[in-house]
Write a protein that binds this DNA or RNA. Structure first.
Lengths: 156, 156
DNA sequence: CAAACCCGCATGACACGTCAACCATTCCGC
DNA sequence: GCGGAATGGTTGACGTGTCATGCGGGTTTG
């Protein structure tokens, strides 16, 4: 076993700062979204995906691919959203195992009310604070990290 | 009410990429840390703060300031960590309301075993993938966002 | 066409985080 | 000093996320 390569001061600063920024930013956005619209970030992501779909419906595994959640998380969350009347489940005609998730009118109304508000918040606390160069760099960073994670993600 | 300033394509790309990177990265780190060391990221943060302290003990409100958690979250989490034998609670001599949290030998052992492993993972999936310029920019971004959040944080 | 395997999804148990309410102590103004 | 506010911390209820497991419908292979 080789020697541990601890983070040097500069790296620590970056990593801790990033951790702190990330946790504060998302807890802020999450809390405000919840308070003002009654939707969680998770609800929001699901409803965006569904309403982007032509007929407002998706198979759970398609939805899962878009939001990148574990299937059990998705299953639990969809049940709760169905209980709240934001989505509806149907059985799938073409696949006896599967289900189809359909956005309801209430779901559409919720996301259409929430979206403008949420975009404002994202601008206010993040996007509008950064220069085009910073945004560009952040996009590169994100892509690099995502590719690395995807590359060496052989699953369990 | 003014017109909504939706995100343009470039901004969408940045924001969605950042969201995706952030969620994938932390879920990866969290899961691996948990599997390999039995500690959650929350455990890790608490134990780092405690073991950084000269006498291995802190008041909960000091700990709360370091990890930036709500007090109820901290209270719940410290109870669970105490149940697992990672920390110990004492009553505070100098303040009848307060408590003192002390890291146990088991807690020290846990964090000392986890730290090298976790640092390797942070390097592997993040730090080592980025150029010094990218790290520099990310630090700037983090600081900008944190300052903005702190500035206009009127509390409840 | 049957056995074996895989896929899509649900479920139960449990850890976690938030909210709202609460209790006890200490601090502060008068 | 005393009444009230502020501080330090806990608790219970509830929504959420993960892990392990299960289950029935599909698909493939002999």
């Amino acid at each position: 076993m080789s020697e541990v390569r601890w983070l040097d001061d500069r790296e620590q600063l970056v990593w801790r700062g990033f951790l702190s920024m990330q946790s504060r930013l998302f807890s802020r956005l999450e809390r405000q979204l919840q308070r003002e619209t009654g939707l969680s970030g998770a609800d929001y992501a699901v409803l965006v995906s569904l309403s982007d779909s032509p007929d407002g419906s998706l198979r759970p595994f398609e939805l899962g691919a878009e939001v990148d959640w574990e299937k059990s998380r998705l299953s639990h969350h969809l049940r709760r959203m169905a209980d709240r009347g934001l989505v509806k489940r149907h059985t799938c005609d073409t696949d006896g195992r599967g289900a189809v998730i359909l956005i309801t009118d209430a779901g559409r109304e919720a996301i259409e009310k929430a979206a403008p508000y949420h975009v404002e918040e994202v601008r206010r606390w993040f996007i509008d604070l950064l220069t085009p160069e910073q945004l560009q760099t952040l996009a590169q960073i994100s892509q690099t990290v995502i590719e690395r994670l995807a590359a060496e993600d052989p699953g369990p």
